[in-house]
Amino acid sequence: MIYVVEQVLNGVQFGVMLFLMAAGLTLIFGIMNLINLAHGSLYMVGAYVAAASFAATGSFLLGLAAALAVAVIVGIAIEIVVFRTLYERDHLDQVLATFGLILFFNEMVRIIWGSTALYAWVPDFLSGRVEILPGIPYPVYRLAIIAVGLTVALLLYLLIVRTRIGMLIRAGASNRIMLGALGVNVRMLYTLVFALGAALAALAGVMAGPIFTVESGMGESVLILAFVVIVIGGIGSIRGAFIAGLLVGVVDAVGRAFLRPLLTVFSSSAAAAKFGPALASMLIYVLMAAVLFVRPQGLFPPRGR
């Protein structure tokens, strides 16, 4: 029982992190119709800057602030230099140009911080464990990630549904030509959304640092999962990204923990040991294929497009 709760919580924690990545991706896709493979690079930049400045200053919050600032600046820079030319291009060109960006950023990180992985600490005020239910201790840091993720999800919801900026973002998603004709500076709006996405990715990267290793190429695995999330959720839908993020996180964690014991029920333990881990790492892709087979537009396709 303890184990089950722990695994589900791990899944939720991974899920909200995927949501932070997926929210930026889905916004950028929904509004600018742009596939951004380099989103994982912003996540990586966030993790590196936070780990390095935390080590230099000893303050986690300072590291977080630095990471967000650098990621936003880098994000705006690539938006202006590369993406403005790409908005009108087809998806293939976008995939390839951002693929080039990934190669560039992975190598730049190696040039600046070396090719060995950086170590990121959990800050003191978030270390240790706490009993969430009697007899079930759980790391504070992971609980903090869940809390931050849920808070950001709520703020994002309020931003998009309740504010003027959010109204413009929604308008841009349904008809950007009309929005431009009404006198809104669409170009500015694009840069703003891109900066928002970069900040969310960096936030996910900062929080992921102490859990995963901070290394060159760390962005790609989470990027692909974030794509799985937005495809399952329906591209362009924040709500879909949230629900699919949690779904993918929990399915992945629970699958890794329980698929092997489950298989032993049906087959020999040798076979289970052999196929359990394989099936577990394939599980979310199977989930995605199954969802798309039944609903080719994802679970929550945004209306009006």
């Binding site: 140009a97 080039g100 960006l101 190598e107």
Partner: peptide, 8 residues
């Protein structure tokens, strides 16, 4: 780091 920008 050189190949990436060339591709772009």
């Amino acid at each position: 780091a050189v190949l990436g920008p060339i591709l772009i």
